[in-house]
Nucleic acid binder design. Structure first.
Length: 274
DNA sequence: ACAGTATGGAGAT
DNA sequence: TCTCCCTACTGTG
């Protein structure tokens, strides 16, 4: 689940569950016992997302920095009665009278100073989910690079928050050849991809899933505008994990190739633009 | 029981 | 470009 939309959603969930509270913080698994002790008994002020980095501000200038990596999960839920038991390898547990949040398998889980967090954020490219994001910063890096667009869209210093599903689907939506060099990409193409990323990631935050099929995207936007929420039961992808199947736009077979250690999916028939 | 896989990223080579 | 880390679940023998 963890592309940028997941982390922003998580930040909101943690904020709603714990902001202003003084929860207990522990490490049932034990691997974060030292860090948890520093946060336990402090006021949880707020939770925020920067790309795929989660930052939870506690009183006493202590910031919890979590990065889910590929396999991490951070579940937040309300409960009544006795606290639910910690199942499996729970690195971090945040618990108060009504809510519990369990973190498993993160890539990063650390207590940091405000300066350290600022340095992490400074290294990130613009995040399409943040209103103050400056897409020109991403364009500057992308348009000077000889690396492929496929690599560049995964590079968090170019755009913060995109992952392997969004990059394949965005490139397909804009008919862009993923193997083209960044410096070959037209400015208008970049702008279109960026604006689309803003749109898709917001839909991702609303639904909690990656939705990239245009009809489904529109349905979510319309429903959310009216009711504030929307569900998509079975998001369907155009190319992601559809190797060998027909491209829904042109019928050519979807291809796959390992790019920088990750599977890239694209249609060789209709993705020819730069 | 063991191998393989996953929406990620750091560090060594 | 390779290797490793983190967890849970699926498929194979």
């Amino acid at each position: 689940m963890p592309e940028g939309h997941t982390i922003h959603r998580l930040a909101t969930a943690l904020d709603q569950a714990f902001a202003g509270a003084t929860p207990s913080v522990s490490s049932p698994q034990g691997r974060f016992a030292g860090g948890a002790a520093l946060l336990d008994g402090q006021v949880l002020e707020r939770a925020e997302a920067f790309g795929k980095h989660l930052v939870v501000t506690f009183g006493g200038e202590r910031l919890l920095n979590v990065h889910l990596g590929l396999i991490g999960k951070f579940g937040v839920q309300a409960y009544a009665g006795a606290a639910p038991p910690a199942v499996g390898a729970v690195r971090l547990r945040i618990l108060d009278k009504s809510h519990v949040a369990d973190l498993r398998g993160p890539n990063v889980c650390a207590v940091r100073t405000p300066e350290e967090v600022e340095a992490i954020i400074a290294r990130l490219g613009p995040d399409p989910l943040r209103a103050d994001a400056d897409p020109d910063r991403g364009w500057t890096r992308l348009s000077r690079s000889r690396r492929t667009v496929a690599e560049l869209l995964m590079d968090q210093t170019v755009v913060a928050g995109l992952g392997n599903i969004y990059r394949s689907e965005l490139l397909h939506r804009h008919r862009v050849n993923p193997l083209r060099e960044g410096r070959q990409v037209k400015a208008t193409t970049w702008t279109a991809i960026w604006e689309d990323a803003v749109r898709l990631l917001h839909v991702g935050v609303i639904t909690g899933r990656i939705v990239t099929e245009e009809e489904q995207v529109r349905r979510v936007e319309a429903t959310a505008a009216a009711t504030g929420t929307a569900l998509v039961e079975h998001p369907s992808y155009a190319v992601y994990k559809r190797t060998g199947q027909a491209c829904p736009r042109c019928g050519s077979r979807v291809r796959t190739q390992l790019v920088a250690g990750r599977n890239l999916y694209w249609c060789g028939g209709c993705q020819r633009r730069s």
